[in-house]
Design a protein around this nucleic acid. Structure first.
Lengths: 233, 233
DNA sequence: AAAAAAATATGTTATAGAGCACAAAGGTAG
DNA sequence: CTACCTTTGTGCTCTATAACATATTTTTTT
């Protein structure tokens, strides 16, 4: 917890979407309950089945939201980038977590107790609209994903994951290297395939000069062709 | 449009979740914009790609929300029962529909222009909480479904669909017949499999005395065993 | 009532991708 | 430096399920 070290200004900048709609009194309430936690690489943030207590906002780092499926196979449901909010859905739905969250890399995460959020929501309609918008976007993505993961073939699914990672986390300064370094296993869990097939298909893509791989670094070479593969499935 | 025929009392009973949080003035606004449409069996309610204009509430009938995937294969994403709201997600996300909706059977649907809903939402925080709750529940279901459809085997997926239909639409007076009669094709599209495999697996279930089939009527005989099959995948 | 179309049923074949085994390389710990 | 563990890479086999073909039955249209 490093709350004491942050000025109001810094808090406002860390969580602008949440902060901006609030009245001065509401901001005061938020400051009281605002805490910060650090997580190590690969550390679990919350588990399936646990009771949600806090809204979380990722201040820095990268997070995966995943679900353990049949026979220990895990499926990455979505990924979080900095300034994004998560861990609140289950509370709003009055249930426990149906997913788990873990840090891809070292993370700084801000926690705000859900009861505080509820209190603010009851007073502030604009804040409600922020969550409505966010949940609506996520639900649309989830619906798209359901169809893509079930109907596309392996190459289409992997191509889609690569584009998805590019859109979410962006590229490095060279303008072509994905700025997230995933293990082949995580890539497989994101694309609904076995690790072997992720490795195989990835090196096929490299042979076909669609990408270049150097360990976990992936350079996007022919984005148009990758888009095409993703589209036709 | 049969708006004129409905009393305020009847409107209030048709859309209680939306109605109840409102102030008298807000209720007046809603009455002005409230219209009703009838749809025939199998009629399309909205299409993928269209721009959302209205919140819809299903007053009577049954609706499927689906998505056309690769190679014309369609996937049923969720189903709507009476008193449920739909068609609003895309508007909140500032996009067009990514799914389509069609009537399983004759439907009566109430339409309310989304701009009216937005206006009410900006004034009424409690109404916002209703949508937050609903979207949160749907997103949880969608996440679960992603994993189930991708990881479970055919029998597990079909078993799950049967239980899902039972939970959503309930049973007839005999206490065992599903009160929705789906074509084998719809059942397949709900369970992510080909029509042939839905037919085959369904008749296997009948042979194993888990269910009894009479045309499109499905009787649940051994629910415990069906649950087990759904669970182990 | 006859004809056409759609839905259901069942058998056969083909294949995408899982599952497994093993080897090599890279990282980490003692 | 050596030993051990994890990750990556590659080949082989097997199976679940799609794809296809063809009846048969039911529904819709004329």
């Amino acid at each position: 917890m490093v709350k004491k070290e942050m000025t109001e200004q810094e808090i406002a900048e860390s969580i602008p979407d949440l902060w901006q709609p609030l009245t001065p009194e509401q901001k005061e309430i938020l400051i009281q309950d605002f805490t910060i936690q650090k997580y190590k690489k690969n550390e679990t943030i919350y588990c399936e089945g646990e009771t949600p207590m806090h809204l979380m906002c990722l201040l820095s780092g990268k997070v995966k939201i995943f679900k353990e499926g049949v026979g220990g196979r895990s499926q990455i449901i979505r990924v979080i980038k900095d300034k994004e909010y998560f861990a609140y859905r289950a509370y709003f739905a009055n249930g426990n977590f149906v997913t788990a969250a873990a840090a891809f890399e070292p993370c700084t995460i801000c926690h705000i107790p859900m009861p505080t959020i509820m209190k603010l929501l009851k007073e502030n309609a604009e804040l409600g609209l922020f969550f409505i918008r966010q949940l609506s976007i996520d639900l649309g993505i989830s619906d798209e994903r359901t169809v893509n993961l079930t109907q596309k073939h392996i190459r289409g699914r992997l191509a889609e994951s690569l584009l998805f990672l590019k859109d979410t986390y962006g590229l490095e300064e060279d303008g072509s290297t994905l700025s997230i370094y995933l293990s082949r296993e995580d890539l497989a869990n994101l694309s609904n395939m076995t690790t072997s097939n992720a490795i195989r298909t990835l090196s096929n893509f490299a042979t076909e000069k669609l990408i270049a791989i150097d360990g976990r670094k992936i350079k996007i070479i022919d984005e148009e062709k990758i888009k095409k593969i993703s589209k036709i499935g």
